[in-house]
Every structure is written in C-alpha cells, then in structure tokens.
Design a protein around this nucleic acid. Structure first.
Lengths: 99, 99, 99, 99
DNA sequence: AGTCGATTTTTGGGAC
DNA sequence: GTCCCAAAAATCGACT
C-alpha cells in the first residue's frame, strides 16, 4: 500500500507545501469538504433531535413510544421490504428453474 | 414473513389512553405523530445521502476518505476530552510496550 | 459512602509507576486482558473463515450462495423473531387494552 | 476427489423445496451445508459473548474499555500501515491547523 | 448499569 | 485489478 507513483498518490495532500500557510490550494479544498460534511452532520443531528422530540411529545400525550417505534418500523418495511421480498422471490424462482 | 399474530389493521390504532371511542381522536393524534416522524426521517435520510456524496466527491479529488472520517470524529470531540483520550491511549501503549 | 479500599482513578492505569518496567502489576493485567481478547478474536476470525469456506464449498457444488444466505437468515429469524413477534403482539395487546 | 458422476451441472440448481421425494440427494447436501453453517455461527456467537465478557471484566478492574478497543485495533494493523495512516492523519491535521 | 436499538465501519462479492 | 454496492460486524448511545 505505499506511494504508487500515480498522479495523486494516496496519503499526500496535493500541492501541500508546508509553508506558513500550512498547505496550499489543496488544503483549502480539504477544509471545504470537512466543513461541508460538518454542516450536513449538524443538520442531521438537529433532525435526530427533532425526532426524539416528537417521540417525547407523543409520550407526553399518553402514547407508548415503543409502539410508535414498531409502527414506524413496520411501515418502513412495508415500503423497502417489498423490494427485498420480490428479489427473494425472484431468487427462489431462479433457483427452482421457474424462469 | 409478516406479523402473523398481529390483527391490527394499518393506520387504525384505537384510543388506548383512556378515551371512550376506538379509532377516534387519539388515533388521529397518533397518525399525526407517526407522519411527522416519517417526514423527519426522510429528511434525515436525504442528508445522509448528501454526506455520502461529499465523501465521494472528496475521494474523487484525491483525498483519503478514511482519514477525513477520522478528522471529522476528532473535531467533533471536545478538546479536553480529546486530549484526555490521547493521553490515556498513550499510557496504555507505553504499558504494553507499543512505542 | 465510606472509604472503599483502592478506588481506581479514571484515566490512569492503577499502580502505574513509570519505572523501567513500564508499568507495574496493572500493566500486566492490561496485557492479560488484551491478549485474551486477541486470542478470542483470532478464534472468531477462524470461524468466520470456516463459514466462508462452507459457503464457497456449497457454491462449488452448484448451490447458489445467495439463496443459502437467505435460508440461514430466515431460519435465524424463525428462532429469534419469535420472541420479538410475541413481544410485539403483547405490546399491541396492551395498546388495545386487551390485557 | 472420487466419484464425479453426481456433480451438479452449473446453472441447474436442484429443487430443494418440494415434497420429501423432490430434490433428493441435492436437498440433503443443502441441508448439510446449512447445518454446518449454523453450527459454526453458533460457535462464533459464543466467542463474541466471551469477548464481551472479557471487556466487561477489564472494565470492572478499572480499565477503560474504549481505550482497550483502540489498542486492539491498533495492534491488529500492520505496523507500516499504522505508521502510514498516522502520518497521513498528521498531514491532514496540519493542513487544517488542528495542531 | 444493563439491554436494546440505531448508526457507523468493515468486509465480501460482483462487474467491467 | 480496481471500483462500487450490499451485507455483516462493531461501536455507540438512549432508555429503563
């Protein structure tokens, strides 16, 4: 896994100079990527908090959070599992030569 | 698969919080909670996809995704926690002769 | 709570002296734990390899690995999901006041 | 290996789901594979439990489980890979002024 | 403080 | 052989 002599060798930041600016344009790019990710993750964390909030609110209204979680899970499955279900059926069909 | 013993029709959860009529106002509230959560989770999934996208883009620019993930994790940590953890790790390392 | 013998301060290896031996009795304990874990993980990795081997062998005999994986998953669910299924049913029952 | 007459032709997967007579020898083979896998997975699960146990014990002795996990991970890594990764991380850190 | 569920990281398989 | 996707494992965090 070492340096591979490609244009952009893994393990190095391109155009990194080590000068007072600590890295050239590439370092700016890196910073940009990092900050974009951090921004998005922050939003994601906010949404996670919102979700927890709704659960909490529902609990305060007298509902059982555990039930709601199960419902959410079931409804999610009803969407994405349908695909998996069909894939599985297809697999079995092929396995049985029913093509 | 499917829940064999579950006889409850989807979206028709009765009022179990003490109200008199089954499938009444409480069920509407429940539906409201469920839909709010689903809405938020959908947004969260979108953000997760966006984040994956940024990682992918950074990879295409020549950066090492794994390292960026570590960077993100480190920056998320409280500074003093990070220091403490690194110190402790160092202590353990020395104890095991992993210098 | 009164004095409790030797309370281990968090973040430090107990009895760590910094002498030439790099850690005293506690370091030995640490090493012991680490090596036990490594030993177990090695065995676990061996088993994982064995499992892969069986899949590979079944493939060489003409079976479809994907199908077998599905079967394994289904049979596992038939065992562990029974509990979850019953829990879920119970939850729904309680939600409906059928207790 | 000896007898070759029973080798399954590729693309012709035996029927394993029908009645007792349907599928024949191939179904028995499939059952054998499945049971071998399940046996191995069970052992694997046991080892996983053992490992958790050791972590728990180390925790009870005053060690920090999280740090030990990191130690285990580091020791698993190839020495040069570890060095390379740490160097890269350091480069990125400097680029971002995380010194 | 232990259990359970959610999330993240790693790994294997497949395509080109 | 390299890259991408999906499945599995490890880790983390919440709730009881």
């Amino acid at each position: 896994m070492g340096a591979r002599g490609v244009v952009m060798p893994e393990g190095n930041i391109p155009n990194f100079s080590g000068g007072p600016d600590v890295g050239g344009i590439a370092a700016e790019r890196l910073r940009s990527f990092v900050e974009r990710i951090e921004r998005l993750e922050e939003e994601k964390a906010t949404l996670a908090a919102d979700i927890r909030e709704v659960y909490s609110e529902s609990k305060g209204t007298g509902f059982d959070v555990k039930i709601i979680r199960i419902i959410i899970r079931l409804r999610k499955m009803d969407v994405s599992d349908r695909q998996e279900q069909e894939d599985m059926l297809d697999t079995y069909k092929r396995a049985l030569g029913m093509t």
